[in-house]
């Protein structure tokens, strides 16, 4: 058995925290299966260059809710995925740390800007 001395002493093995990133990647992927399918199917037939039609679609019914969830899941999934790519291919501790911080910041901005845009459109059409 490959077990560390500490694990043998505690008798419990891993606490499970080490796989948090791995799990979050899978959970966000599972969430994205229905959310991206909804996005693609729901957009079929919406004329994309028609401002009125598109903003009505964004604000219609539960669409703002699904769009917000889609943005949340896709930003989280993308952030985790790009993080792994940076960890694998960017070398040098300073450059790696800077890339990881930039990755987190960029995805936070994308999430906030996307959700803000959806809510602005949804609340405008609701009033």
């Amino acid at each position: 058995m490959l077990r560390s001395p500490l694990a043998v002493v505690l008798g419990r093995g891993s606490a499970g925290d080490g796989v948090a990133h791995w799990w979050a990647q899978r959970v966000s992927a599972l969430a994205l299966v229905p959310l991206t399918l909804w996005f693609v199917v729901s957009l079929i037939g919406v004329p994309l260059n028609d401002y009125a039609a598109v903003t009505i679609w964004i604000g219609a019914g539960w669409n703002p809710v699904w769009l917000t969830l889609l943005l949340l899941a896709v930003c989280w999934h993308s952030r985790l995925g790009v993080q792994v790519v940076i960890e694998d291919y960017v070398h040098g501790p300073a450059l790696k740390l800077a890339s990881l911080l930039l990755n987190n910041a960029a995805h936070a901005v994308l999430l906030a800007a996307g959700v803000y845009a959806v809510l602005r459109i949804a609340l405008r059409s609701a009033t």
């Binding site: 769009l67 993308s78 790519v85 994308l110 459109i121």
Partner: peptide, 23 residues
């Protein structure tokens, strides 16, 4: 799988920009 994933991260920028332009 990785290449398409990273490429779509840039697509995410376009998606958000599209939503922002609509707003």
């Amino acid at each position: 799988h990785r290449i398409t994933g990273v490429w779509m991260a840039f697509g995410l920028v376009a998606l958000v920009a599209w939503l922002c332009s609509a707003a």
